[in-house]
């Protein structure tokens, strides 16, 4: 079935120059493998489409049940150069939590 990522994860995002980092964290660490399978760098890049000029890299933090995405060219120049209202990418984690993911019902029962 399809569920929004927000059902099983929370997160936080911010800026590093013109790159935004988006941290996505499983509420229940047993759901971490779902994040690893469903929330790939390619899907994040596709989800934000034209907002991101560059590549997306993914790093894994199994100890926290979390993934960290580095999104290059994601902030319209970044820092003081950006003309965007969200020049620091503060809202990008919340936005990504709206992405639909595929899960089997049995994966969610605990």
């Amino acid at each position: 079935m399809k569920i929004p990522l927000s059902k099983i994860a929370h997160g936080r995002s911010g800026d590093k120059g013109d790159m935004s980092n988006i941290g996505i964290i499983a509420y229940d660490e047993r759901h971490y493998p779902i994040l690893v399978r469903e929330v790939t760098a390619g899907r994040v890049k596709q989800y934000y489409g034209e907002m991101f000029d560059g590549k997306v890299e993914r790093y894994e933090l199994p100890n926290l049940g979390a993934l960290n995405f580095l999104c290059y060219g994601a902030l319209g120049g970044g820092g003081t150069l950006s003309l965007r209202i969200d020049a620091q990418g503060k809202t990008l984690a919340a936005g990504l939590l709206g992405m639909e993911i595929d899960v089997d019902e049995s994966e969610l029962s605990s």
């Binding site: 997160g11 964290i25 580095l70």
Partner: peptide, 14 residues
């Protein structure tokens, strides 16, 4: 949860 969110904040290669 609150500590994890801040651990991830402005993080590069962990």
């Amino acid at each position: 949860d609150t500590v994890k969110e801040q651990l991830l904040y402005e993080l590069g290669d962990p």
